[in-house]
Design a protein around this nucleic acid. Sequence first.
DNA 1: TAAAGCGATGAAAACGTTTTCTAATTTTGT
DNA 2: ACAAAATTAGAAAACGTTTTCATCGCTTTA
Lengths: 349, 349
Amino acid sequence: MITILDVAKEAGVSAATVSRVLNNKGGVSRITVELVYQAVDKLGYEPNIQAQSLRKKETRTILVLVPNISNPYYAHILSGVSDTTRALGYSSFICNTRGETEQEREVLDLLAKRRADGAILLASELGSNWLLEYAEKYPIVQCSEFDPNIPIPHVSIDNYNAAREAVRFLIQLGHKRIGTISSTNNYLSTHLRLKGYRDELAEAGIPVMEHNIYYADRDYNFKSGKKAAKAVLAQENRPTALFCISDVLAQGAIVGAQEMGFDVPRDLAIIGFDDVEQTTIYHPYITTIAQPCYEIGKKGAEMLCQSLLNQQDGKPAQSTSAHEVILPHKLVVRESAAKRINLLDFPAY
Amino acid sequence: MITILDVAKEAGVSAATVSRVLNNKGGVSRITVELVYQAVDKLGYEPNIQAQSLRKKETRTILVLVPNISNPYYAHILSGVSDTTRALGYSSFICNTRGETEQEREVLDLLAKRRADGAILLASELGSNWLLEYAEKYPIVQCSEFDPNIPIPHVSIDNYNAAREAVRFLIQLGHKRIGTISSTNNYLSTHLRLKGYRDELAEAGIPVMEHNIYYADRDYNFKSGKKAAKAVLAQENRPTALFCISDVLAQGAIVGAQEMGFDVPRDLAIIGFDDVEQTTIYHPYITTIAQPCYEIGKKGAEMLCQSLLNQQDGKPAQSTSAHEVILPHKLVVRESAAKRINLLDFPAY
DNA sequence: TAAAGCGATGAAAACGTTTTCTAATTTTGT
DNA sequence: ACAAAATTAGAAAACGTTTTCATCGCTTTA
């Protein structure tokens, strides 16, 4: 292995000078700089990052914890994160934690072990107070999911109002019996979307029917949506519209409804959430609330790197000062729920 | 920060002894071991990984280069890789390279900078001889894609025979005019699948019609498949079956065919490749060649870690000895191409 | 003309481990 | 009871950097 001493010897200078040149510290004469670069090129020297980190007390690496790397929603956020950290001079160490607290802790312990300078968490359930232990000591940012009772900086969307908008849209379409497919998971977003659903109905003077609320498994998938729709639609007073808390659930619900002989959106309007792939494959294309995934990741990375840079400059860390960023969502109307359906088609009206 | 010296002082021993205890080196009395552990617990000591790596000259980390983390095919291989490295005591540093050579090199340079001990590449195009530069110096394993002319250990499936099987199945179904949707990308798998298609037709005495071969863009998607199907089916002597080199292309082809008024599989049989999600959402469920993605990743990780462990024990590195592992694929017959279609329905017969 | 200032450089310390070498003590064998 | 061997543990070197401090030779200033 070529070390800085080999380079120093080749260039006829000291290691200190080589280091100064390579780190653009200045205070080195033009001619020496040239000599050093020549030696570096000639020997093909690459600095040892371990040694650098050890001495500089920083790794320029951040941890990214993602519960499920195969989920395209997370994958998009991940893209935003890794592009941005790269641009800011940091590497991102992506860790697939499967949502298991044990693995999450194990990864976060890498902060204490000094393998990384900070961490971005892509999802953590409500009530994970243990996170604070880490956030108090190290810079941490949460993307998309967070716990409002735990003061950790985060970036997300306004899930509550997004849900209200979605439901409002269904109401404006003329629907009165509106169901929802939620989940038993413990994410804040899930709770807020359900609350938004309830509140919007209430405000419109429509009573909330508990039998129109279906709770899919924690780790729901396409099949969960299908099952949910079949359960909800089999009821006497079946809903004419369904607000699903994710696109996969919506996709499943559409297929489930179709298999029962319903036409979407004529017999049943369906609206999803996320707008991440697979919404425009088969007709009806899915009407949904679009989240700015890439930007969520980007913003999160910016916040974290900013805080690291400040800390480095000796400024206050303010890691736990609960900085909150809310990015705009957007209702995108496609086919699974859209205007101009003729409600007279429904015998109930 | 708590260092090993703090622990040593607390336990009333030397740093060397603490190190010995923590690394299970033996040669330390029962009582001292106990003292050390107590001190570690009391102070909450976590060893500094940078310092360890620097001294031990190993990082216990491997690089994983993936061109597109959002692609579920890669995501599954990734799962296999990261589960396995974890089990073997290594961390995996996942890097999204977007398939850009420049980024790939930048990441692989981390090997020279000693941030990682080896690398797994999930895809690299044919003719990337520059890779050998790295493979000669560091342990590298390729998963799924590789270049047969470059002696780097790899794990893959038998793409050639898998393609032949797929086409043979279509022939057995009675099809004579069989097209394929390939791609202009430069992956070995793409070439082999096309060659398998040609050879199987030839062996069956069916002339290969060049106008029945469609080349989708390098980074094809669902829409490419749709476009491809529409182009191929618009021809005079349209094929009655289509072999697609991936499931997304097959999915697109199905929708394209349907939009043109064809029924799949009655009017057109379609077979895909990979069997990774989205093959069983809408009917017709997609008939495809299933790849053991998770196992590919697992095997690749095992090979790499094994080679690292050997190297560590001073055994020959044999990094470039072109170890090759071929895992079994499987034809899974679903609906988009299946027996018992009545060929008399086709006016051409 | 001496003092001060400045630019360029090197020696050495520091970062936090692991490992080698050596020494002290205990155990074992005869 | 004594030499040899084994066990336990510490001091110090090593890993490859960066950074502090000191030095040296110049130029500038009064």
